[in-house]
């Protein structure tokens, strides 16, 4: 019984929404703006630690970037404007999710293309094999029949 309770508690602990690295002092008073700031922070990469969003990172530069995101929101910029500013400074690299554009088509659609090619190859292969088995074998010639009879007769030896 106690074990179950502990497990439940653990599960609850895991459920808690990730708080990120945002410090209380950073937060904006306006909850709507703050939630937009969190949204933006989650798609921006921390350029120091690189595989974390600035929302998750404790790096000092990530901290300053979070503050800058909030500052720009307070000034009245849209989410996209804030993100565009960061991209203009650090390039597409600052986006955790690579944008869909000509340069990244291979990345986005390559796997799908490979899958379609594989399906096409499989379809052709299976059809050919089915056609080969479906075709009835040619009937035995007289010569073949004679040899077969001979083999059957001599089978006991």
């Amino acid at each position: 019984m106690r074990r179950i309770a502990v497990l439940l508690l653990l599960a609850l602990a895991l459920w808690a929404p990730a708080a990120g690295a945002v410090e209380p002092a950073e937060k904006l008073a306006d909850p709507a703006l703050e939630s937009r700031a969190r949204e933006i922070s989650q798609v921006l990469r921390c350029v120091v630690c690189q595989n974390q969003s600035i929302d998750d990172s404790n790096a000092e530069l990530a901290h300053d970037m979070r503050l800058l995101v909030r500052e720009r929101l307070v000034k009245g910029e849209s989410n996209q404007q804030v993100i565009d500013y960061m991209v203009s400074r650090y390039g597409d690299f600052v986006l955790l999710k690579p944008p869909v554009k000509a340069k990244t088509y291979a990345l986005w659609f390559g796997p799908l293309a490979l899958f379609l090619i594989a399906v096409a190859v499989a379809v052709v292969f299976v059809r050919r094999r089915a056609a080969a088995t479906a075709a009835a074998p040619a009937p035995l010639s007289d010569d073949e029949r004679r040899r077969l009879d001979e083999l059957m007769k001599g089978g006991d030896r």
């Binding site: 300053d64 970037m65 503050l67 800058l68």
Partner: peptide
């Protein structure tokens, strides 16, 4: 506060 640093990337 990294304003110039971020502006420079």
């Amino acid at each position: 506060k990294s304003h110039a640093a971020i502006a420079f990337g």
